[in-house]
Design a protein around this nucleic acid. Structure first.
Lengths: 186, 186
DNA sequence: CTTACCATGTAAGGCGTTACATGATTCA
DNA sequence: TGAATCATGTAACGCCTTACATGGTAAG
């Protein structure tokens, strides 16, 4: 396991919680990691193969009838490998916001166009918030339960709430300023 | 210009403001776009070549003595091309936060390790905030000036401030909760 | 019986970074 | 004169997505 990717750790971490299939992993990611670490099938299945080949996880056939189904479980080696990575300080925290890039060049088209961009962004943020809030509420109660992992999930969830709420405040203020600038020209 | 990358537009947009060299572009990006759209030399120079080949920008030799120096200017075609892109709704707004990924799996190592991760993150955020605040203040005055582009730069800057301040609030709360959980175990 | 979801996987290619290589110029 | 900064560029490769391909199963 010479060149480990972040992907490896993401999948290893999820499998530490419980054995899962590639399909399950995708669903879990979409409900939990998606905000700060999205992954597609195109990287999940190949990663599962290499992790298996390296003895980090073990595959077991749990097919029902005609449908292929493979569940993966972390090995001790895999868990130790993950833990070692968790100890070292995090590398990059990056964003890639097309909306902001377009806004930065907003002067090329004027305020109406930028306001439209912000409105689209705002709508998406609201939709994400609606998905996140019930999860956050559920974790608020669960985080006091026996499973100590819930506290960590709760914290990442709170990060999302803080982020999205900040986004919405910014959207409101930005639209206001753009409209003012727009009206001054009339 | 069949398959345009986002990179193309980022560079085209910067050159709309004023003619620049590849080196200048890098510096500008590090001061303005870096938060939501980082770029390295490894993509700047090749992109400048293809944009030139496609007639989106024009290169002019402004070498002084022995040092090669090439300034690029947007053409009408290039500006129109950028404007067309600015009109269509933004695609993806993504994050890739290694810190959050590690925190999500924090239960594998326990609260002390997660607190350390958060502290490193917090330190970086504070450093970024210190860089951003003077820029924001400068743009506050400039945004009322003749150059209407400043308003848009100001807005993206405000986005950064809102984001970082939210990060700091979250850091404080997350550390508190982790310490509480930690003390309960003693 | 058909729609939605379950389930696995691959091929091609997009999109970018890191590290290297090279040298001029400015400033203390 | 040495360090920092200016300035350009390439090669190798990392890392992931999109789109495709295929079919089983459950529920209405």
């Amino acid at each position: 396991m010479a060149n480990a990717k972040k992907m490896d750790y993401a999948i290893l971490g999820l499998l530490c919680h419980q054995p899962m299939t590639g399909y399950d992993i995708k669903k879990w990611i979409d409900k939990s990691l998606r905000l700060f670490w999205g992954i597609s099938y195109g990287s999940i299945y190949p990663t599962l193969s290499t992790l298996t080949a390296n003895g980090m996880i073990s595959a077991s056939d749990v097919s029902t009838n005609e449908r292929t189904k493979i569940a993966y479980t972390v090995t001790d080696k895999g868990r130790a490998y993950l833990q070692k990575w968790l100890e070292v300080p995090a590398g990059k925290n990056e964003m890639r916001y097309e909306t902001l890039l377009k806004l930065f060049f907003g002067d090329e088209l004027g305020p109406e166009s930028s306001i439209r961009q912000i409105e689209v962004f705002e709508k998406k943020v609201r939709a994400e918030l609606e998905l996140l809030r019930p999860i956050a509420e559920r974790l608020t109660t669960l985080s006091k339960s026996a499973d100590s992992a819930h506290l960590y999930h709760y914290l990442t969830c709170q990060f999302g709430l803080e982020l999205y709420e900040g986004d919405l405040r910014w959207c409101a203020e930005a639209k206001k300023l753009l409209k003012e600038g727009f009206e001054q020209k009339l």
